[in-house]
Design a protein around this nucleic acid. Structure first.
Lengths: 143, 143
DNA sequence: CTTGACCCTGTAGTAACTCCAGGGTCCATG
DNA sequence: CATGGACCCTGGAGTTACTACAGGGTCAAG
């Protein structure tokens, strides 16, 4: 069970990633080059599934590949003392919390909109933009 | 107070957007072309601030410009009956909720990591990748 | 009246994919 | 055993969403 030996197409289906994207991640070093079969096909194991899933999720959440790389480095260096990476972790944490707050505002407005639709309302009462307009309680906007 | 008459640089500073990006949004029709001064400078009002802030936030949350356009359309057509856009709203709602769940998992793991760092731990116990690995409770992964 | 900060248009470059051409591998089926 | 369709290979061009110049105009302060 440790070695499912997936083809690139199977890995793609499992993780919702295009085959070309997987090869691209290998080229830029985000996903390690897998073993090859006799016919020169890539052969992936369970670690690849976990790592690729992680990469796709973090990308989908709007972080750049540079951040993905930084996070993967955290996980890849087990002997590294935490101190030197603390600042990075705290910084990511702050950004994640900001994104959660923005998404919750967006969700609430979409939710309100959906209920209004169900009651036969019109778009005039749509306040989707206001939901993510400048928040005067904290003063600043996007980074 | 309805017309602050901002220059492109001032709008950029207010919304955390590069000047070139603002001009780019105008070119592709996401931000309406503003009035011009005698010297052909762009002159922005409060509506531009709100709209641009919205665009930047939604982009920052990992949605493509296509989705931003769809959301802006919702807000731009006040007479449109809700029924025809209900499906879009529900779809966005689902995606927003999925992203919130992913971000919360990521936040919890970063939080755990930060506390561990403070106690002088090592990266060996870092489970940041597991935090966003395939969730077997729902079976599927990224879209 | 000039000088530095800021604006204009237009084009070229970058990040992160995405698609395609031209060709090899694998295997189920005739 | 051959052969055709699904899948894989490499390398390169195209797309999206910016980002960074180049070459030049505007404007307020000194």
């Amino acid at each position: 069970m440790a070695n499912p030996e997936l083809s690139i197409g199977a890995l793609g289906k499992l993780t919702g990633t295009k085959v070309e994207t997987i090869r691209f991640y290998e080229k830029i070093g985000v996903l390690p080059a897998p073993a090859r079969t006799a016919g020169n096909y890539r052969s992936y194991g369970h670690d690849h599934v976990r790592r690729l899933t992680f990469v796709r999720r973090v990308r989908d959440l709007g972080f750049p590949l540079e951040t993905v790389r930084a996070m993967l480095d955290l996980a890849d260096q087990p002997d590294r003392p935490c101190g030197e990476v603390d600042a990075l972790v705290v910084e990511q944490l702050r950004e994640v919390e900001r994104k959660i707050a923005d998404l919750e505002r967006l969700r609430d407005e979409l939710d309100r909109l959906a209920h209004q639709c169900r009651r036969g309302g019109r778009m005039a009462e749509c306040r989707i933009i206001e939901a993510l307009s400048p928040h005067h309680e904290d003063g600043r906007c996007c980074p």
